[in-house]
Design a binder for these strands. Structure first.
Length: 790
RNA sequence: GCGGACGUGGCGGAAUUGGCAUACGCGCCAGGUUUAGGUCCUGGUGGGAAACCGUGCAGGUUCAAGUCCUGUCGUCCGCACCA
């Protein structure tokens, strides 16, 4: 075996690529474009772990392939660097988050560069750079102008430990996504973005894009569209209570109403409520509960009867009681429901506990009973009929509801984009005109006032109102981490532009993103948020397409050797630096693509990676057996072209593991034949290049396989003639069991084949004494003799 | 509870429209090279003495089922009182 020094070779080629700027891309309109995107990393203090590169290497191999196919390829990289861990580290160690970020980015950069990824480093973006967040603030300003950003008093998720508001998407099972501590509900004045106004379009436009079905489903689920009706119930205090229901057809089975604890009726008619003390007490108790507690207490229903006020069923005039209960949520629908215990499990549970009536109005066969004019109708008919009737009488209307909530956009933190708003006592909210509005330099990042941003106590917040000149206050909340990542893919197109977030020409040329790969964990966060922002930018004419990502794929997580999620606390983290220093970047890249199905989680194996090392060594050793012959030998034509086809197609379908397996098979064939021609080696080397770019460039060079470098070559195309088999092997079965194989000419007819097969000793013996009822021939594959019938 | 994915050797995993189950790799076994170990090379490797049996389990459709249908068990992920 010829030895191969990966350490030196990889450094050498990385330097050549960097110096020749071969991966820096220009807006060359004469070429077809291809825009590949990976989720830019959050530069944490822990550095890269082996999970990150799975996505990067996969799209890097596609990027390299596309370049060889003649595309103008954009494959950029940047840093999503605002965020809590950095700020927390800064507080703890008394270092400015800016310094921490700079340091972390330098470390990440070094690690990424060691992988030989073909990023265009000249377009690097950084969300914490004022030149970048100038445009994040600009987009917020446009949202504000169009009424899509507003400050609102809302019940919010409050992380007790981070002392910060969280979006719904950041609360995992009642706990903070970041620190895993308790999250409680708190009412606070917050900036929100009205993503709910885009709910329907975010569902509809999924039809325009090529996303995995699981991603589309999860987004649809999260948006949670439901069709139902709003119905007004009169009450004895004079105020109507409006409820939302998806089953208006069951209205004759409504035996009580339930209001969320926060419902306004309690405030407006407190003097009518005989047990107001008890009611307010219940409200207080449930507000103290965190979401986690609410769901943890095995859903034992609680509630309190409102004494002194009754509701009236709008259709049959029956008086029914009203309850307050926290199984009804204040922020969904109208915060009030009509309870139909006969046809809703939760209502039934509550009714059983409080001894309330259960009126059955739909039979097992789905037809209505005890429902006046709905009797005999099925559910669909009854829904339509009752909604019509309610509308005619002015008591209700059909209504579409979404589970999606507006996006709470304020964070009481320092290390985020300042919200460019000034609050003037006279003029109200006024936009800051001079962007970027930079974060002030401060010394101490620890929040002094609990629950407010540290910026609150800085004199930066004291300003003159740009409209009237009076004293005013800046908004001291900052944007959430998801802000900068909601549009970063646009900045890559024109990263230095100071007059626009990107020029119209570059937006027109590069959008949409052809292929975006990232993790499933972002499906209802980043992926949804960025689609929302993009649609907004489309509506105001900034971007030319309604959807940013034409195609989205998702990689599986890389697990620790024990099959568990990799984490510091589990002690099963594999450090990529160590893998690279032991095996080199090519082996690492190859293994990450070979280890299993790309879309499924797979455990790391320090054993299996050796197979990839051996493979590359065998490949390198092929130069030892280069024959005098130059062209592709007749005997190799077929297998070589089949491999071209296989690698090409598998890569397009994320089947990187089988693409590599076919390359391994090919190398084994050449080794066995103990020779390889230059032309054969040339094709093999180009096919392997996207996965193992360093060793292939080096072999190309030392074996003089052609002029220039591989980056100057073209991706091979398979010849349909060459992959045809002249001689094919046909499986011979008797009653579905394999009894033999025959090598025959491709052109053989069915009758010729049957004669030939019957002469085979084994087949002859099997068929002896049996009557062949039929012969089934599956062309070019299989022949089955059937001697019985069912 | 709702939504989604999945179940194939000792392990990671292959298997277009139903058509040779276990490609490729790891591991293991035997032999070779080596002062020795590792590396490396060659061969073997689902079970069974065999007929045969084998893709979580039980049925079904079919000439033919890992693949399709019905039921069932189990695992993983997301959401979770959304009326």
């Amino acid at each position: 075996m010829i030895p191969y020094d990966f350490m030196e070779t990889e450094k050498k080629w990385q330097k050549i690529w960097e110096e020749s700027k071969v991966f820096c891309v220009t807006n060359d309109f004469s070429k077809p474009k291809y825009y590949l995107l990976i989720e830019f990393p959050y530069p944490s203090g822990n550095g890269l772990h082996v999970g990150h590169p799975r996505s990067y290497v996969a799209l890097d191999s596609i990027a390299r392939k596309r370049r060889l196919q003649g595309f103008n390829v954009l494959y950029p990289i940047g840093w999503d660097s605002f965020g809590l861990p950095t700020e927390n580290f800064a507080i703890k160690n008394k270092i400015h988050p800016k310094i921490v970020t700079k340091h972390n980015i330098a470390h990440f950069k070094e690690q990424l560069k060691a992988l030989g990824l073909s990023f265009d480093w000249s377009r690097e973006v950084n969300t914490t750079d004022p030149k970048y967040y100038k445009w994040t603030q600009w987009i917020f300003s446009r949202l504000f102008e169009r009424g899509l950003a507003e400050k609102r008093n809302t019940s919010v998720n409050w992380c007790v430990s981070c002392r910060c508001v969280l979006a719904n998407e950041e609360v995992i099972a009642g706990k903070c996504e970041r620190c895993n501590n308790e999250v409680i509900q708190k009412t606070k004045s917050q900036w929100i973005l009205k993503i709910t106004e885009y709910a329907q379009r975010l569902i509809d436009d999924l039809d325009l894009v090529d996303f995995p079905e699981r991603v589309k489903q999860q987004q649809k689920n999260w948006i949670g569209r439901s069709e139902g009706a709003l119905i007004k119930f009169k009450t004895t205090c004079g105020k109507d209570v409006e409820v939302y229901t998806t089953r208006p057809d069951t209205i004759f089975g409504a035996t009580y109403l339930v209001l969320a604890p926060e419902h306004e009726l309690v405030d407006l008619y407190s003097e009518n409520i005989e047990n107001i003390k008890e009611v307010l007490n219940y409200r207080l108790e449930s507000s103290r509960k965190s979401d986690f507690e609410r769901s943890e207490v095995v859903r034992e229903k609680t509630g309190v009867l409102i004494k002194g006020i009754k509701a009236v069923n709008p259709l049959d005039g029956r008086e029914i009681p009203i309850f307050l209960a926290d199984y009804v949520l204040s922020n969904y629908g109208t915060g009030a429901i009509m309870a139909v215990p006969a046809h809703d499990e939760r209502d039934l549970e509550f009714a059983s506990k409080f001894g309330l009536d259960v009126n059955k109005v739909v039979k097992e066969d789905g037809l209505h009973i005890n429902s006046e004019f709905l009797d005999g109708l099925d559910i669909t008919q009854a829904k339509i009929r009752v909604t019509e009737e309610l509308k005619r009488r002015g008591l209700g209307e059909s209504k579409v509801n979404f589970r999606l909530r507006d996006w709470i956009f304020s964070r009481q933190r320092y290390w985020g984009e300042p919200i460019p708003i000034i609050n003037c006592p006279k003029c109200g909210f006024v936009l800051e005109k001079n962007l970027p509005l930079e974060l002030p330099e401060i010394q101490n990042f620890e929040c002094s006032q609990c629950g407010e941003s540290v910026l609150e106590s800085s004199d930066w917040a004291d300003v003159e109102c740009p409209q009237c000149g009076d004293r005013a206050r800046r908004e001291t909340d900052t944007m959430p981490q998801w802000a900068g990542s909601s549009w970063y893919f646009l900045r890559y197109l024109d990263p230095l532009n100071d007059d626009a977030l990107a020029s119209p020409e570059s937006l027109n040329y590069w959008l949409p993103i052809n292929w975006y790969n990232g993790g499933m964990e972002h499906t209802t966060l980043h992926l949804l948020y960025s689609r929302f922002w993009h649609k907004f930018l489309y509506d105001i004419g900034v971007v030319p397409v309604p959807e940013p990502y034409a195609k989205r794929t998702s990689h599986g997580v890389i697990l620790g050797e024990n099959g568990e999620k990799m984490s510091k606390s589990r002690g099963n983290v594999v450090n990529p630096d160590e893998v690279i220093s032991e095996y080199g970047a090519d082996v690492m890249r190859l293994y990450e693509m070979f280890m299993g199905d790309f879309e499924t989680a797979a455990p790391w194996s320090t054993q299996s990676i050796k197979g990839c090392k051996r493979f590359l060594e065998k490949f390198w050793d092929l130069q030892r057996i280069i024959s005098g012959e130059v062209e592709i030998r007749a005997g190799m034509l077929n297998v070589l072209h089949k491999t071209i086809k296989k690698v090409d197609e598998d890569m397009e379908h994320l089947k990187f593991n089988t693409a590599i397996a076919s390359l391994m098979t090919l190398v084994n064939i050449f080794r066995k034949s103990d020779s390889i021609t230059r032309e054969e080696l040339k094709i093999l080397t180009i096919l392997l290049n996207p996965f193992a770019p360093h060793i292939t460039e080096e072999l190309w060079n030392v074996a003089h396989l052609g002029s220039g470098r591989i980056t100057d070559q073209s991706w091979p195309k398979f010849d349909p003639e060459a992959i045809k088999d002249e001689e094919i092997e046909i499986v011979i079965q008797v009653n579905g069991k394999v009894r033999g194989r025959l090598k025959v000419n491709e052109m053989i007819t069915q009758s010729e084949l049957i004669l030939l097969a019957k002469k085979e000793p084994v087949i002859e013996r099997e068929l002896n004494g049996k009557q062949v009822l039929k012969e089934i021939y599956f062309p070019k594959k299989l022949l089955n003799f059937v001697t019985y019938c069912h």
